[in-house]
Computed example of a mutant assay.
Amino acid sequence: MNDENRPQGDVDEDQLLPQLVAHLREHRAKLRDEWASRIREAHLLEAMSAQEMAAETTSVYDNYVEVLETGSVEALQHYARDLSERIIPRGVETHEVVGIVLLLRDVLARSLFEKYQNDFALLNRVLDAYEPAANRIANTVAVSFVEERERVIRQQQDAIRELSTPVLPVRERLLILPIIGSLDGERARQLTEQLLNGIRTHRAKVVVIDITGAPDVDQTVANHLVQTVDASRLMGASVIITGLSPKIAQTLVTIGVDLSKMNTIGDLQGGLEEAERLLGYHVSTEEGITSS
């Protein structure tokens, strides 16, 4: 007797899921192709080539069915992270991942309906076994993808910040921190962290912070600069600030920043000369810079 014609009592409860999985594996090629067609109709994964999409949909299908069989959420999370690492660089968005998983859930549910439509009671039992597992898979994949995407975004932001606030060793015990672009509270905090790490790593005694490329600073950032100077002193390094624009200088005076804590020099060249003086170097036009 065919499965679809069996009466309800002929299928034990613990055999429902294995029977369901066997059906999905038996019709793998047909169901995967139907799912891929639905993905194209919905205009999802268009950033991927046809070959890439075929490979990924096959992989997702097989893992989906395996998780239905084993119920291993841990294995699914691991797979979802691997999938995310592969497809995020290709420009796949979060809504696309959620969309394709929901489409697969629906394609498989329709197939189960067609298989068991002649036994409504058995169909209900099969769907009761399938739907919670399918929904758990969809939720797990979506959450894992979002977490991986956020991790990638954080890495990119950190890389951009590091490039925009490089701590540069100029000579022994001397660092330069050129600041380019707008400063906000978050970037100012990162600037302090990078600078203090640089002071410790290079055993710096003098730091030149050049803000020629900073268009403006507000009170919060100005106060943070003062804190950075204080923290650097605690680490044993003197700080020279160069490149103050008239606008920023006016702002510092207006908001009442304690300028006695800041050693300011007009330009970077003057700041470097002052730094070399503090380090015991002197400039000779004929012989260059020498230590005293």
Rank of each mutant, 00 (worst) to 15 (best):
N2E: 14
P7I: 13
G9F: 15
D14I: 09
L17N: 05
L20I: 06
H23W: 08
H23K: 08
L24V: 09
R25A: 03
H27D: 13
A29Q: 13
A36W: 00
E41N: 12
E46N: 10
M53K: 11
T57P: 05
S59Y: 10
Y64D: 05
Y64H: 00
V65F: 05
E69Q: 13
S72N: 14
L76P: 05
Q77M: 09
H78P: 08
H78W: 14
D82I: 03
I87N: 01
V92D: 00
E93Y: 00
V98N: 12
L102P: 02
L103M: 11
D106T: 08
K115W: 02
D119T: 11
D119I: 00
L122E: 08
R125D: 13
A129D: 03
E131V: 15
P132K: 01
A138L: 10
T140M: 05
T140Q: 01
A142V: 04
R149W: 12
E150G: 04
R151L: 11
R151C: 02
V152I: 14
I153F: 00
P166T: 07
L168K: 03
E172W: 08
L175G: 07
I176A: 14
P178A: 04
I180E: 00
Q190W: 12
L195I: 02
R200S: 15
T201A: 15
R203V: 05
K205N: 12
V206F: 08
V207T: 00
I209F: 07
D210A: 09
I211M: 13
T212L: 11
A214D: 01
D216I: 15
V217W: 08
A222V: 05
N223Q: 15
S232I: 10
I240P: 07
I241S: 05
L252M: 14
S260N: 09
Q269R: 15
G271N: 03
R277P: 03
V283S: 08
E286F: 13
S291C: 00
